[in-house]
Design a protein around this nucleic acid. Structure first.
Lengths: 228, 228
DNA sequence: TGATATAGTGTATATATCACACTATGGAGG
DNA sequence: CCTCCATAGTGTGATATATACACTATATCA
């Protein structure tokens, strides 16, 4: 069965920049293509948008196929240069996702040979304009962590202040003063001290905190603005 | 001639939220549709994206047809709910534009009966999800004028500090302190005092300023951040 | 028990923000 | 030409925020 139109139509895809953090590096999930063009090359995970599903549904479907679920997901930008795909016109709506690396065990989706995490400072060559998409995503993340508490999406449910600080330093690509950072985040009153401490570390164990999402929503309604 | 594909494909359009400012109100340019569905209803200016043109080219083409040229234009968001258009699936990439009202004389584009400016607080009912698109654009504008000097795109090339202040008050929907505002903007050193003053006003004439784009680019390279 | 690795803490200074009210000037109108 | 009117243009003190900076505390391990 075919579908006919009076004018040529672009294909519509979604591509996802999935960020993870492993205590050291910011990482991105890539897949190795199994199909031409560029079979064997690394690419962002993505898929065609089905005619009955929303863009976000398509993005979540692709992520789910790779075993990535329950993630923060946000539309990033639409990339549509007429020649970005050599075959035909393909318009892609890029999303970015933030996942807790510890809880993910990724697998290749059906149209990929392989899936793997790469540190952002050590990415392989990528197909199409996927490098530009990643640049855009990194800029967005860098800007957004300063005024929305989304960085917590990259950490395990309980985390130390040092982990949080390192995450900010990695995303912002700049050192952060320990005492000032701690004072600022603690006085915001968005962290809940669990009473638990780190385990299995060869030094003084740090306190573990949780981000208090409901308190944030409450404060936000009253006009509070997160800022770091 | 028809074009056939193995899977159904969405139509791709761009829609533009064109902002103008008339010393009193923030306005948006709307068109009255001449075609079904919803002939006679008001809508955002928009058009189908041709297969060989980029999204921004399509948006500029539509604006040009209405006599709107040389405008600040930025991609806003992609709206693609499967049922947003009753006929078939239409994915629209929304752009927003900032224009100097004084220099524009708008006309209806070929697929419209009429084009007119509406104050944002007094918009007619709109077709499809165009109200949601406008909401998104207003939020973006409100956020962005605080950290990028784009508000100047809405003013004539020479303007008074009072005009600038009123523009900010209108966009931010909040009063601004005159002395603090003037100090802040003046110490940023981005305004060039032309030496000219207002004409034909029945009171003390205010000094006219220009925004110094090249100085801004220079400072930005050195790490300067605009903030108001 | 001491070496090591990281946790956790306070203060002084500089900068930015905020609140606030009067004088200056040019045109209009009598 | 004098007065009125409307808006332009200006400064200061109080408070809050940002920044720079170094030592003590504690758990583990050898």
């Amino acid at each position: 069965m075919t579908y006919a139109y009076q004018h040529p139509r672009a294909a519509l895809t979604v591509d996802c920049v999935v960020f993870g953090f492993d205590e050291r590096d910011l990482k991105i999930l890539l897949v190795q293509r199994d199909l031409e063009p560029f079979a064997g090359a690394w690419a962002l995970p993505g898929c065609l948008v089905r005619v009955e599903e929303s863009l976000e549904e398509a993005a979540r479907r692709e992520l789910e196929e790779m075993g990535v679920v329950k993630v923060y997901l946000e539309q990033l930008y639409t990339f549509a240069e007429p020649d970005r795909d050599p075959r035909e016109r393909v318009v892609t709506v890029a999303y970015y996702a933030l996942v807790k690396l510890s809880s993910q065990r990724v697998k290749a989706s059906t149209d990929a040979r392989n899936a793997a995490w790469f540190a952002v400072c050590d990415l392989p060559c990528l197909v199409f304009d996927h490098e530009a998409i990643i640049d855009t995503a990194r800029q967005r993340l860098k800007a957004k962590v300063r005024y929305e508490p989304i960085a917590f999406e990259l950490l395990p449910p309980m985390f130390t202040l040092t982990q949080l600080q390192h995450l900010y330093e990695t995303i912002l690509e700049a050192p952060v003063d320990k005492r000032n950072f701690r004072r600022k985040i603690v006085t915001m009153n968005l962290l809940f001290e669990t009473g638990e401490i780190e385990r299995d570390v060869a030094h003084r164990a740090a306190r573990l905190y949780r981000f208090d999402e409901s308190k944030y929503k409450q404060l936000k309604k009253k006009g509070f603005n997160f800022e770091l």
